[in-house]
Amino acid sequence: MKKNILISGGGIAGLTAAKLLSEQGHNVTVIDRALSFTKAGFLISLKSFGVRIMEELDLMEQLQAASSPSEFVSFLEKDEQLIQHISYEKMNKNIERSVLISRGGLHNVLYDNLKDQVNILFNTTISGIASRGNKTEVIFSDGQSMEADLVIVSEGLRSSTRERYFTDSQMEDFNTLYMGGRLQMEHSYTVGDFKIYIDVNKMLSIYPIANNEIAIQSYIHHTGDIATIKQRSAELLESFFSDYNIEVRDLLTRFTEEGLIFVDKMGMVEASDLVNGNLVLLGDAGYCPTALSGMGASLSIYGAKALSHFIGKTPDDLASACSNYNTLMQPIIRKFQGNARNNASSFIPADAHQLNQFVNTFRAASDIELKKIMTDPIILTEDQLNFKIN
């Protein structure tokens, strides 16, 4: 039986769910607070099961067309001393290939495929929700309303709907500032050969993704509030790396002056239950693992596939479908949030002693040890890949 499903939040998780559920025959409406669709977004790496699901959705050709080359990565100390030089092809030999793409590029692949199939309402948010037996009446910000059998909340890390209706959930401040974006400029870097600098309380990544474009990402341990940080973002970025070589300093100066920069403080969502009646949390709104997990986009796509899988199994029992989704997701959420905490401790060391310890260990690591560090943590079990609950 067809269900009326509302998805609040048209990001990667929301659009993936919309595609899967509309293909099951449900009436799907997507609302988003943005005034219109935009391709803007920072660089992400879609890995492992995220790539597999995009292939299952028959979107690999579009995904590859929107991606950037990624061949090698060099981990460096700030004085350019090499820690490790890694081949992506070699590192990913035993898992699904990794795809480097902007968040906006991935978003656009999904949106372009879906925009003519699903009703998408921009400049629209949820202003109220009322239960009507097995139905939910949703009041929109423009005063219109909709009766839904299920409301999927995929509004992102700072979801207002989660804060209002999932009062037991909380957002953990990761005390890490993210500054990233893209800069259009001719450069002498080798495209696809990346640099990642490891330092005390900070990490800087330089990604030459085209002959005339560089993506830059930085993670900085910071306890300040986001409003103040955004006002001083350019000054903070340059000051944190002021003791780096002139090439890096000049690049960051040009980035702050001419680049498209995204600034935010990272956080994790802790929700003991992703379900509240006819409402269910999806993606970063329910389980943001932060960018430091390396799997935020993949986990959003996986969550959408898991939820649609269970709805497809019991379309006339949405309560059971959502309960099974919650049961499956909770240990996976803990795994990837744990990965993020471990990566923060390793790749953003808190002091010089931890930095030296990490550099020496990472530099001496064998191929097998590197695989344990870089790829083993992002693998799911066969049961999880097949949405089986133990």
Rank of each mutant, 00 (worst) to 15 (best):
N175M: 03
R182S: 14
Y165P: 02
M185V: 10
Y178K: 12
S169D: 04
T190L: 13
G180H: 07
E186M: 08
Y178I: 13
R162A: 09
I198F: 07
M179S: 04
Q184N: 10
F166Q: 05
I198N: 01
T176I: 12
K195C: 05
Q184S: 13
L183T: 01
I198A: 01
F166V: 09
Y197T: 02
S169N: 05
E163D: 10
I198M: 03
F194T: 04
I198G: 00
T176V: 15
R182D: 11
D193K: 13
T167L: 07
L177T: 00
Q184W: 07
Q170R: 08
Q184A: 11
E186V: 11
L183V: 06
I198D: 00
T176H: 00
S169G: 11
K195H: 09
I196H: 14
K195M: 10
E186D: 13
Q170P: 09
F194E: 07
F174A: 10
Q170E: 07
M171G: 11
R164T: 07
G181E: 05
L177Q: 00
Y165A: 01
T167P: 03
G192F: 02
S188Y: 14
L177K: 01
R164D: 06
F194C: 12
D193A: 12
Q184V: 14
T167S: 06
Y189T: 04
F194L: 08
M185T: 12
Y165H: 06
I198S: 01
F174Q: 07
H187V: 02
E163I: 09
D168R: 06
T167K: 10
Y178S: 11
R164W: 05
G181A: 02
V191H: 01
K195P: 00
I196S: 15
R164V: 05
T190D: 13
Y165G: 01
M179Q: 06
